[in-house]
Design a protein around this nucleic acid. Structure first.
Lengths: 317, 317
DNA sequence: ACTCTTTCATACTCACAGGGTATCAACGGT
DNA sequence: ACCGTTGATACCCTGTGAGTATGAAAGAGT
């Protein structure tokens, strides 16, 4: 019953995600045979069959699915440990805040102001992630805290809700649907959404936890660069707006984002049967840092002042 | 910027806990020089000084403290991944429930009953942990769920409170303090508590999170046995009761535990300024298993029926 | 049905990293 | 001043993880 190894987990996750030893090996930048051996050895150690292989295809067993989940969180925890330790050693400690540009509900300036006034305040460094990867950034230690929209994968995170606001659908002003003052999801059936990567923006308030957003890591492993440009279908706001104006797609935004981009050619309409978006401040359960605590306090205070009727659901910590 | 290794974290944690390379090496069952080298190499990789060494003593730097925290959670996550995968591969899947004998508030039979009626119910295996190590057992995958008393280290766990009941202090019936119907903490100053291992029973509602209960793992590493007998000062209930009867110490218990051990020679008294104990059902954030969900549902339902006035603070998941 | 291709497994070799032993060097207590 | 304690350095050696070459099995195509 020997010790489990990081290498083994990385290998297994790669294979489990690719469901193909050859591709997985390529992704890991190694040859296929040692990869096969390593996974077999892992199975032997655990006494469990993780993958069902035929010469034509590889599938996960139930135990494999369990391990895939846990291995990902474990690998996150490891990266987080390394990143945080590195960060803690830097000469100028900073608070790294992960957010998606413009989803702060207009609160960010006030939050930063309030935070600057706190005792334990540090200089804030914004970590702009292109996807819905804010939660992941906090989880794996690239950021100390994050502002994120509510259906997010909260494993390993503590969080405090800040403000809740409705989702609006953005569509071409000329769209016949724009005549109605309020829509329902069914009305939008058949309209194309920013598909491919539904992770961007507040699209698809369905996909929670589990797989969903984090199956592939498109950037080459171990790349700490500020998030390589996402060459997806349509991912930056100007491009999305352009497509919306042209009527070739519709898109959901939290109200505060919509207010920030008033465009004559785009109509924003509420959607009656769509869960509202909740902006939350999240941080890793693992780190009890005074700077983070101060930031959370600042954020909650500002949000409470901005939306005084909000409920106060305290969780964890 | 190479990959962090499990071995390195284990080594660092050992040294950080012992603050002594020699002892740490012994604990890791290896020689001292390679340990020193490994830790140095870790520091080099992170570009951070983790330990300040003089020839006479070793101390943690701030970065070292940060890493100690994160390394522990990371190591837990790794063990959990291994244990859960092993468990998922077993032919008879079971729900492993961690609890301390008698702290279930008398709810356990009813909860098990209700659970047995659930769709996704599995045979339940009780994991009796001697310490306050239930949370740890759930965290590192030895158990799928746990019943634990409230101030517990909830990192990595989701939980749902079940019932709240006051702590009582148990003392010799002959004790002069027993004359009073209700005590305050100050009255007990100077009385000896079950010291040494304050982790047992609901003693000391202070020590939360961080270090505290989990610094050493007394049982030999990798031992999956049903928790080796704890040879601490006084850890099993009969022994504790004996000492209480003799007046040589006092001890706190949640009310339901006290009711279960009525003894003529022992007086139970409420303590006015002591936080009540909350029993909670907890499970790992990482595992979204139907069996666990069913158990939580059963537990919450039973608890709600037993204590209908309880508030309903929902958190996570 | 035969073949070709795809894909995972096996056999063998090699290199390096992690561990051991012996020893040194620095600092403290007496 | 000396000795004991404790971490660091030097050197060697073994085990294991990775590569290359090759095999075997199972679909797909004709």
């Amino acid at each position: 019953m020997k010790e489990l190894e990081v290498r083994q987990l990385r290998y297994f996750v790669a294979v489990a995600e690719e469901l193909h030893f050859g591709r997985a090996a390529e992704r890991l930048d190694m040859a296929q045979p040692p990869l096969s051996r390593a996974v077999r050895e892992l199975e032997r150690q655990l006494g469990v069959l993780l993958l069902k292989r035929t010469t034509r295809q590889v599938t996960l067993t139930p135990a494999g699915r369990v391990l895939l989940q846990d291995a990902r969180t474990a690998l996150d925890a490891i990266s987080a440990a390394g990143r945080r330790a590195r960060h803690a050693g830097e000469t100028t400690p900073r608070l790294r805040l992960a957010l998606k540009a413009d989803i702060d509900g207009g609160l960010l300036p006030r939050i930063l102001d309030a935070y600057a006034g706190e005792e334990a305040a540090l200089p804030v460094e914004l970590v702009l992630g292109p996807f819905g990867e804010q939660a992941q950034a906090v989880r794996d230690g690239r950021a100390d805290a994050g502002l994120l929209l509510s259906p997010f994968d909260d494993r390993g995170l503590d969080y405090e809700p800040l403000v809740t606001e409705p989702f609006l659908v953005a569509m071409a002003a000329a769209d016949p649907l724009a005549a109605q003052p309020c829509l329902r999801l069914a009305d939008l059936a058949g309209r194309s959404l920013p598909g491919g990567s539904p992770a961007d923006q507040g699209v698809a308030p369905g996909a929670h936890g589990s797989a969903g957003a984090r199956d592939h890591q498109p950037s080459p492993a171990g790349n700490d660069a500020p998030a390589a440009s996402e060459a997806r279908s349509a991912s930056d706001l100007p491009e999305i707006f352009r497509l919306v104006e042209l009527g070739s797609m519709v898109c959901f935004f939290p109200a505060s984002v919509a207010w920030r981009y008033p465009r004559p050619e785009i109509a924003y309409r509420p959607v009656s049967d769509l869960e509202p978006a909740t902006l939350a401040v999240a941080w890793s359960q693992a780190s009890h840092s005074a700077a983070v605590a101060a930031f959370v306090r600042a954020a909650v205070t500002v949000a409470a002042a901005a939306q005084p009727e909000a409920g106060n659901t305290t969780n964890g910590s």
